[in-house]
Amino acid sequence: MQNLSDAAVERRKKSWGFMVLSILGILIIIAFIISMNTGYIRLSPMDVIRTLFRMGTEKQSLILFDFRLPRIVISVLVGAGLAVSGCIMQGISRNALADPGILGINAGAGLVVMLFISFYPTTAAAPVFLLPVLALVGAGLTAALIYSLAYKKHQGLSPTRLLLTGIAVAAGISAAMIVLTLRLSPDKYQFVATWMAGSIWGTNWKFVLALLPWIVILLPYVFYKARVLNVLNLGEQTATGLGAAIEKERLLLLAAAVGLAGSCVAVSGGIGFVGLIGPHLGRRLIGPKHQMLLPASALAGALLVLVADTLGRWILQPSEIPTGIVVAVIGAPYFLYLLAKSKT
Rank of each mutant, 00 (worst) to 15 (best):
Asn233Ala: 00
Glu58Ser: 04
Arg50His: 15
Phe67Asn: 05
Glu320Lys: 06
Leu276Cys: 08
Met177Thr: 14
Gly262Thr: 10
Ala308Gly: 14
Gly81Pro: 05
Leu131Met: 15
Thr238Leu: 02
Pro333Cys: 04
Leu252Lys: 14
Leu311Met: 15
Gly243Met: 12
Ile74Pro: 05
Asn37His: 02
Val133Ala: 13
Pro159Cys: 13
Ala143Met: 05
Gly262His: 01
Lys153Asn: 15
Cys264Tyr: 11
Glu247Arg: 08
Leu281Asp: 04
Ala328Val: 07
Gly312Gln: 13
Gly101Val: 11
Gly198Gln: 07
Leu299Phe: 14
Arg161Trp: 01
Arg50Glu: 14
Gly198Met: 07
Ser44Thr: 15
Gly312Thr: 12
Arg94Asp: 09
Arg54Phe: 13
Tyr120Gly: 02
Lys13Phe: 05
Gly25Met: 05
Ile33Ser: 00
Gly156Leu: 12
His154Gly: 05
Gly324Pro: 08
Ser148Met: 14
Gly282Cys: 11
Lys289Cys: 09
Trp16Met: 03
Thr38Met: 05
Ser268Lys: 12
Gly25Ser: 11
Ala143Gln: 06
Ile41Phe: 07
Val73Leu: 15
Thr181His: 02
Tyr337Glu: 06
Tyr189Thr: 13
Ser35Gly: 04
Ile178Glu: 14
Lys341Ile: 01
Leu316Arg: 01
Gln190Asp: 15
Thr181Val: 10
Gly275Val: 10
Leu24Val: 02
Val192Ile: 09
Ala332Glu: 06
Ile215Ala: 05
Ile63Met: 11
Leu311Val: 11
Ser319Glu: 09
Ser118Asp: 01
Phe18Ile: 12
Leu234Ala: 05
Phe129Ala: 12
Leu180Tyr: 15
Gly101Ser: 12
Ile325Thr: 07
Asn3Met: 03
Ile33Phe: 08
Ile28Thr: 10
Leu276Phe: 02
Tyr120Gln: 10
Pro288His: 02
Ile23Lys: 11
Phe273Thr: 06
Thr323Met: 11
Ile26Tyr: 00
Leu141Gly: 15
Leu62Gln: 02
Ile34Phe: 07
Leu219Tyr: 02
Pro288Arg: 00
Ala139Asn: 03
Arg227Thr: 03
Arg313Asn: 00
Gly91Ile: 04
Thr142Cys: 13
Met177Val: 12
Phe207Asn: 14
Gly108Val: 12
Ser93Pro: 03
Ile102Phe: 09
His290Ile: 04
Ile30Cys: 01
Gly91Trp: 00
Gly138Phe: 03
Tyr224Asn: 06
Gly156Cys: 13
Lys289Arg: 15
Gly282Trp: 08
Ala261Asp: 01
Ala226Lys: 09
Val128Met: 14
Pro220Gly: 10
Gly108Glu: 11
Thr323Cys: 13
Val84Glu: 11
Val76Glu: 01
Gly86Cys: 04
Glu247Met: 06
Ala126Lys: 07
